[in-house]
Nucleic acid binder design. Structure first.
Lengths: 153, 153
DNA sequence: GTACCTGCAAAACCTTTGCAGCATC
DNA sequence: GATGCTGCAAAGGTTTTGCAGGTAC
């Protein structure tokens, strides 16, 4: 898994993303730029169907192209693939130094990003020491019922 | 999501599982008992292909039957379905009062169960208060490279 | 000009559903 | 005996691969 590089001063997210893609051997195609724009604007994980139906992408490139772009971005550490126990994978933009946890409604499937003071970072060191694993990172998901879904019963 | 019931004194895991299945309306079939036995013995999450090729199950029941059993068990809170960002779902036995976190090698895909003094429980209350979600539980996964995969490079 | 990227088609794979026959209660 | 469970077949989605043509470098 690649390391992410620090943004330069004054550089915004899209600029950082495009520069980093270039540095890691990707070509600056229209599809790539639009995909990054959509992912960054979303601020929450999106699956392929959601990405495909974004107006900026729907007539820009087809599903397979999106998959291949997302795979390349994932290999380069610019995007992260998430499970959420649904059939379709979710993808989220990774900006250096940022970490999100997620809150998912088990009824309606709604996904929110949380920016918690996450106590798990400290555990990572301990797990690395205990197990010999290296390059650890974590994903934390909360599942429950959102207020809207809790009303009926 | 169903609540799990407490085990009775002296009752082992398999007995608890079978009793709970019966109480929640499942029939005591050979396939169900073998599946529970395999899941409990595994002590780590298994996917359907792994379950299917377990000697106790391979000539006992087919893939579809396993799926349906696992779905019924999941609805009844006896089994939990996990994502792990792979294509196939993983299933793990849920014993009341136990919680596991997971450690997954991003190279070889090996999955280990961790029994951590997990600091996330305290956060659940805070997240419920902040967001209005109810019935929260969490899943925590660590990703990294296992010692064996770290050797080559 | 070369190497990579895109789009279309199709394959591979995992999951879900239908239905007749069988086992459990 | 009624109800639910099993096995086979097939459908429904998602993900992956092949290849000819186009685009970025």
């Amino acid at each position: 898994m690649s390391q992410t590089e620090s943004p330069e001063p004054g550089e915004d997210r899209l600029d950082w993303a495009i520069r980093t893609c270039r540095e890691r051997g990707l070509r600056r195609t229209k599809a790539l730029q639009e995909l990054l724009r959509v992912l960054i604007a979303a601020e929450r994980p999106l699956n392929l169907t959601e990405l495909e139906s974004a107006p900026e992408l729907s007539d820009q490139c087809d599903r397979v192209t999106l998959y291949r772009l997302l795979s390349r971005l994932e290999e380069r550490g610019i995007v992260r693939r998430l499970g959420f126990r649904e059939r379709a994978a979710y993808f989220t933009f990774c900006y250096p130094g940022e970490h999100h946890d997620y809150l998912i409604c088990t009824d309606c499937g709604k996904i929110e990003s949380l920016s918690l003071a996450c106590p798990v970072e400290a555990l990572e060191k301990q797990v690395m020491a205990d197990t010999g694993f290296s390059g650890l990172y974590h994903e934390l998901e909360f599942f429950g019922r959102c207020p809207k879904c809790a009303i009926p019963a």
